[in-house]
Amino acid sequence: MTYFARFYHPRLASGSRVAPPSLDLRVSPAATGRGFADGRVLLHDVTVRYGRRIALEAVSGEFAAGSLTAVVGANGAGKSTLLAAIAGVVRLAGGVVQRAARQQLAYLPQLAAIDLDYPLTVSELITLGGWREFGPFRSPGTVLRARVAEVSEMVGLAGRLGRRIGELSVGELQRALFARLILQDAAVILLDEPFAAIDAQTISVLLDWVAQWHREGRTVIAVLHDLDLVRARFPSTVVLARRCVAWGATEAALSVMAA
């Protein structure tokens, strides 16, 4: 039973598994609540609509600080929407997301969301990871520039800094975006399909980074399709089908999905 205690199943539990936040934040549904100091992410009845279509319905649960969680489900199950809701880039139709302040959050959108024709160099792309430091108006300092060179080497992109992002392979581009995440140095890291259409060698490099972030105590939440990969590397899993189907230890959660 303890095995299933971490489960959340909407049909079994009519209420919320987590205690509702003491502060009623529903007056402003789009609000992200008071920021946590650590990497905890708390969802309470999170609902997102695109027009009339409901993408995500009444999802509640908690990502513990320092947890490493996969989000799985069929296409259109609301996986990307869940990450976007946590990142605060979509408007919530209802519910509350509580998490660290934006400065402590790093979000990797799907590759398709990035315009590769844009005339930007790899170096400029990675440097954006220091946004918290320079913001929209100031220019990046010399310390940051040195960090960019260092980080690009760590992901295996040294010598590619001057290239346009459109000239990179998909794998290289994802490495560059991971370098940007590394620079962001965030407590909560959200990855939307980080390994889709990526070569095996790059995947192993990027997975090492995910493991590294986990060791460093950051909260990592990743949308994934490869269930073998999820079983091998992700301790906990959320199964979505517009609603939350299962949330807990990976094996148990995936067995609910299969049933």
Binding site: G88, V89, P109, Y118
Partner: peptide
Amino acid sequence: VGAFDPAFLRAVG
């Protein structure tokens, strides 16, 4: 930045 990666711009606040 908003022109090529709008989600990043919104996510960094």
